Amino acid sequence: MSIQHFRVALIPFFAAFCLPVFAHPETLVKVKDAEDQLGARVGYIELDLNSGKILESFRPEERFPMMSTFKVLLCGAVLSRVDAGQEQLGRRIHYSQNDLVKYSPVTEKHLTDGMTVRELCSAAITMSDNTAANLLLTTIGGPKELTAFLHNMGDHVTRLDRWEPELNEAIPNDERDTTMPAAMATTLRKLLTGELLTLASRQQLIDWMEADKVAGPLLRSALPAGWFIADKSGASERGSRGIIAALGPDGKPSRIVVIYTTGSQATMDERNRQIAEIGASLIKHW
């Protein structure tokens, strides 16, 4: 058993032996400061991975655009179909130039040979490839079927209504393609630790998130040596930015963190910096 498999397999085991986890309101002070700095709403939640207890939250039940963070949920739905014998990670999917949409750094290189379902999930999560996400959405029946999958998990909040890139429109008060921090954190925890997916599929999902290559300026920039993080970021119109993550010290995840912001006029660099500073406060007061 690899170190990674050891880590995921023991998450339920550690729940019975973990020390009490204490919240630190200092992080919420930073979240509120980020709102002031960005001139935008910020949603935040910090969840204990083992118990599911909410440690801190700010606007946990307000809607925010999901942006590309939905791609983790999408690959969770794909893995659920794999577990049920309805899909194979090794199945190759062929597509054409007409299928390519904006920001497809991986799929645009494989027009001649296509990509496997496994490769598409990797591209969608680690590189946020939009065509990969659309191709995967097609395999499960489209955005409405992803919403149905989430409903069956008990998440009646999170919804996907459109495809890439239209889902990134982020119109104020538009509930399409949105979630709430509390709903996203709970759903992510179920995917990573619950019985919905097999152990192998849970491991695969967290491996893809751990290999994320496009979230460096966010929480990863504040991470001390030896800490673990598996994450997925997102960005969209109207100053929207977000990240969902499982992270913790000693090389294993122990908390879920979800951060969303929307409605800012700030630059992408400034949005990144504010999220990184929230992460730094979280780690300092861990």
Rank of each mutant, 00 (worst) to 15 (best):
I243E: 02
Q265A: 14
Y44G: 00
E175W: 09
E87W: 02
P172R: 08
K53A: 15
L205V: 04
N152T: 13
K213D: 03
L197R: 02
R91C: 02
L19P: 10
L218Y: 02
V21I: 09
Q88S: 15
Y95H: 05
S254E: 15
T186Y: 15
P165R: 03
D161N: 03
A170T: 13
I229T: 00
T187N: 09
L137Q: 02
R238G: 14
T262A: 11
M67S: 09
D99G: 05
T107V: 06
W286C: 05
R81W: 03
L47R: 01
L74V: 06
G251A: 09
I278M: 05
D177G: 01
D174N: 04
S201G: 09
L218F: 02
A246L: 13
F149E: 05
R63H: 06
T187D: 12
L137V: 05
R238C: 13
W208G: 00
I243D: 00
G85C: 07
S57N: 06
M66W: 00
L218G: 04
V106R: 06
G90A: 14
P224W: 01
L19R: 06
L136S: 00
P60Q: 14
R241Q: 05
P60I: 08
L137Y: 07
G242L: 00
D250S: 11
A211C: 12
Y44H: 01
E108R: 15
L136R: 00
A222C: 14
R176P: 04
T126P: 00
E164R: 00
L160H: 02
T262Y: 10
G90E: 15
R59P: 10
L135K: 03
S80P: 00
M268V: 08
D129A: 00
T126V: 08
W286M: 02
L55S: 02
V42S: 01
T187M: 05
L146P: 00
S240F: 04
T187L: 06
S68A: 00
R91Q: 04
R91S: 05
N152D: 15
Y103M: 15
G242S: 06
K53R: 14
L191V: 06
D207A: 15
G43R: 00
G90C: 11
A266W: 02
V82H: 07
A183E: 08
Q265E: 14
G43A: 04
I278V: 05
A133T: 07
S240D: 14
E175K: 09
P181R: 00
F22S: 15
K144N: 13
Q4R: 13
E87V: 06
E175F: 11
A215S: 11
G76T: 03
L137W: 01
M1I: 08
D174Q: 05
R202C: 08
Q97I: 13
I229L: 05
L197A: 01
I243P: 00
F14C: 11
S80M: 11
T267L: 07
P143V: 03
L19H: 15
D174R: 02
F70L: 02
D155N: 12
E164K: 10
N168T: 07
T126I: 07
S80E: 14
T126S: 10
E145H: 13
E166G: 10
E61V: 12
S96T: 14
E61K: 12
S57T: 08
G242D: 00
Q265S: 14
L38F: 06
A9K: 12
E87R: 00
E175D: 13
D177Y: 01
N130D: 03
L205F: 01
Q4A: 13
S201H: 06
K252R: 10
K213S: 10
L19I: 15
A170C: 12
D174I: 02
S57L: 05
V214F: 04
A246T: 07
T187Q: 02
R238E: 11
L89H: 04
G239V: 02
G239E: 03
L28P: 00
Q274R: 10
L223K: 03
S201A: 10
I171M: 12
K252H: 12
H94L: 14
H94D: 09
I3N: 13
V8S: 15
S80N: 13
